[in-house]
Design a protein around this nucleic acid. Sequence first.
DNA 1: GCCAACGTTGGC
DNA 2: GCCAACGTTGGC
Length: 153
Amino acid sequence: MRYWLMKSEPDEVAFDDVLAAPGKTVSWFGVRNYQARNFMRDQMQPGDGVLFYHSSCAVPGIAGIAEVVGAPYPDASQFETDRKYADPKATPEAPRWISVDVRAVAQGRYLPLTELRTVPQLQDMVLLQKGSRLSVSPVTRGEWECILALAGV
DNA sequence: GCCAACGTTGGC
DNA sequence: GCCAACGTTGGC
């Protein structure tokens, strides 16, 4: 069992959208970074914990708790010609990018990035490191438990 | 395989 | 909109 933080722009997919989705489950698409992809491909397992993070918005922060459902599969958006997530070098025979399904589990108190930065136990979080831009990053068990406690989950 | 130029991320 | 930090591209 591992834990992850996954960044989503709420204008695109907010945690509320996951809660409202059928089965509270959405496809996590649009990852276009090899390191993030490799985490998804090589280390994610069904049941892994996910911190659902809102980025590029007025108050960035952790919006909810989710879990990985099922195995990775090719990200359909890479084949959508001339669209935002299109990758001309990807083909159905040789897909380059993958998706996983993510299900909302709990919604606690919203935890703004500014608050996370003040918590001593979270100092080493990948998210909080200078220049960190990874859209999928590992979270330790200690960080996970600290955040769930802060969120009141 | 180096590395400069360029593109992207994402907080502020 | 700015800009620091990082990733990717492509000429050599």
